[in-house]
Nucleic acid binder design. Structure first.
Lengths: 212, 212
DNA sequence: CAATACACGTGAACC
DNA sequence: TGGTTCACGTGTATT
């Protein structure tokens, strides 16, 4: 088969940057027109790629959030903003508990607004700051167990022989109010017990090391 | 100046739905042209509002994420996707800790992939399951302090005299690998210490109550 | 038909 | 100058 005609055609459509080595009737120097056209094509395609890049990320977000694939961009982004805010606050709440013990004895039982567990339980935060003793934690656990409180999270720190324990606990919604009061009273008696007993025996190497 | 010709022309191009109440030379009923023009204007403005809505959400995301106001849309959305994934995993990891103690002694130190703290620290999870004793927690704290590990989260549960402690700790990125090994060894020795000492003395009312 | 949402190509601005 | 990003107006489909 003879492809010479096709050859000629292809050669004539090429834009040549250096036509020294080619007969003029084969290579056409790039006209302003051609260059503008090529630039336009590039521009067009680049813009398309950019759009696709953005949309692919939006699609990823669609899979990450509780929403179907047919929610419009604006609503999707609104959900994203909301979700990021939520997650940020959630993690900061969890990691930013203040556990550095103070010099004064303290008891706080705070009911957090909102049902974070999502399953009919009320969650609140209890903080106890007092002199450290080795039986404090087990006593605390005993109190929580007797009040049927589930410990979702516990954080503790000791410094200079003093300790602070921050607990995030969940109570059945029906008994949440009474549980809070019971817990407050129990912690109070726990604190009294700590102060009435001899502490020097319970001081340990760790605590002494931590004294500045 | 006489505009009668122009008037005539305009009037002739209008399609009038109801010109009974208006002298034809004063009020111009909406022409196809006019209506199309108004539609175009509406369309144009609506599209502009849509763009502004989307961009305002993007700006909100810019303030929420660690990035300046001059990052382009695609990169911004990429960061958002990454951040949402991180936060999702982080919260699920934190809330889904398994703390029910088992009958066999266990030590696990898992390095989570990724820097969840976002500030050059590596976070990993340590779990210790063994017989309960009152000094266990203080000993644990001592170990963490000596290894310069910051406890982001601690969870514990006792059942039938046995206890499980799950810790989420952060280490400086430079020493994270060594810290993991040191922590494993320290926990191992802690477990040996527990088993070699007399436990009956440490058993307490709480534990006995919990035995089925 | 009007309202809405999207993709597209283009002009402008910025390295 | 070319590569990249943005805003804009428009064509088109879905409701």
């Amino acid at each position: 088969m003879d492809n010479s005609h096709l050859f000629q055609f292809l050669a004539s459509t090429t834009t040549n940057t250096n036509n020294t080595y080619y007969p003029f009737h084969v290579s056409q120097p790039p006209s302003h027109h051609d260059r503008a056209l090529a630039a336009m094509k590039n521009h067009k395609e680049a813009e398309k790629r950019r759009r696709e890049r953005i949309n692919s990320h939006l699609d990823q977000l669609r899979t990450l959030l509780p929403c179907n694939s047919k929610t419009d961009k604006a609503s999707l982004l609104a959900k994203v903003v909301q979700r990021v805010k939520e997650l940020k606050q959630q993690t900061s709440e969890i990691t930013e508990l203040e556990t550095v013990p103070s010099e004064t004895d303290e008891i706080t039982v705070l009911s957090t607004d909102g049902d974070y567990a999502g399953d009919g339980r009320l969650i609140f935060k209890a903080s106890l700051c007092c002199e450290d003793r080795s039986d404090l934690i087990p006593d605390l656990i005993e109190i929580l167990k007797s009040l049927h409180l589930k410990t979702l999270r516990a954080e503790m720190a000791t410094l200079g022989g003093r300790t602070r324990n921050v607990l995030v606990v969940a109570a059945d919604k029906e008994h949440s109010i009474e549980s809070i009061h019971f817990l407050q009273n129990s912690l109070k008696s726990l604190l009294d017990r700590s102060n009435s007993t001899d502490r020097s025996k319970r001081r340990r190497a760790l605590d002494r090391r931590l004294i500045p």
